[in-house]
Design a protein around this nucleic acid. Structure first.
Lengths: 167, 167
DNA sequence: TATTGTTATACTCTATAACTATA
DNA sequence: TATAGTTATAGAGTATAACAATA
């Protein structure tokens, strides 16, 4: 704007206290990542959580809606709309549980599994761009550290099989 | 809530694809951290971003409001309310810049610096709880990795001094 | 009465757009 | 005309509450 003015060195960067704070870093990185993922998915006609829902169903063939919502930190009412949209496109199917007719069990269709494959590529690219500053080894380290933190604060991140419910 | 019920133990944990995805992990951890920080600050009468504002001013004595907003990813209109609240409590002072009377320069008061000290303790505790799964070494590694990712996607995370302002 | 999915409503946060005073 | 701060408005996203069917 005005290169001649000394510009009291208005710091255009964040103070060290914030830039080196895991709290602040995680907050900002999480926010930016969410922003990118939302935009990328929206561009191909999906909502942010559609990928999570499909991924979840791929590993757990049949889930009740409430379980899906709880695992993904979604409101049950919110999930209804997401599932409606996925069902219209025939990526999932809803079926009443005969044992308890209040429950709807949700499962992936073949088309859904296929579409999940496409979205995986998209998500992988977002991740690759985002972590471009790190080499493969470092990405692995980061993932391990984050996963350990996650498992500590939220049991839903537990590794399958290692559930080891306290007797 | 209901410890006696068998709790069908439909997979109560996330699929490996999500639980090991840096994208998903960063999103969820960032969200949870924001939730905790908001609650903790609210409990002592502060808004989430008050800490960031005070911290920023502590390192850069005088900032124009627009600069503060830009650095913190805040809307300028949003920042007004935050500063009003901090000014009422006499933690900051606003002063018109005589060189350009449109600008307000903001600076920390002595009371503000003192209060920042209190809030630092609070934030440190949140961080400590959140990262309890990691030892000090690992926390350092995590911070370094996150900082590098942050610097890559957002120049505002650049280290001070490395700015190398073009003469 | 409690719970599942559903629908409708209210609230919060954020983004957008006017408005003023200076430049 | 453009910009800094301010104020007011609108929209998205989320949380809360009501509802019908089933247990």
């Amino acid at each position: 704007m005005n290169p001649s003015k000394p510009q009291i060195q208005a710091p255009t960067c964040l103070p060290a206290e914030l830039a080196s704070s895991p709290v602040f870093l995680l907050g900002r990185l999480g926010y930016e990542l969410k922003r990118r993922a939302t935009a990328a998915l929206e561009a191909v006609g999906y909502a942010l959580y559609d990928f999570s829902v499909l991924s979840l169903l791929a590993e757990s063939p049949c889930q009740a809606q409430g379980e899906i919502a709880d695992l993904l930190n979604l409101d049950r009412g919110q999930l209804v709309g997401l599932l409606d949209s996925l069902e219209e496109r025939q990526l999932i199917e809803r079926q009443r549980d005969p044992k308890d007719r209040r429950r709807q069990t949700v499962k992936l269709t073949r088309a859904g599994r296929q579409e999940l494959g496409r979205l995986r590529g998209l998500v992988a690219r977002i991740e690759d761009d985002f972590l471009a500053a790190l080499d493969l080894n470092e990405r692995g380290e980061l993932e391990q550290l984050l996963a350990r933190v996650a498992r500590h604060i939220d049991p839903r991140f537990a590794e399958r099989g290692s559930v080891a419910v306290a007797s």
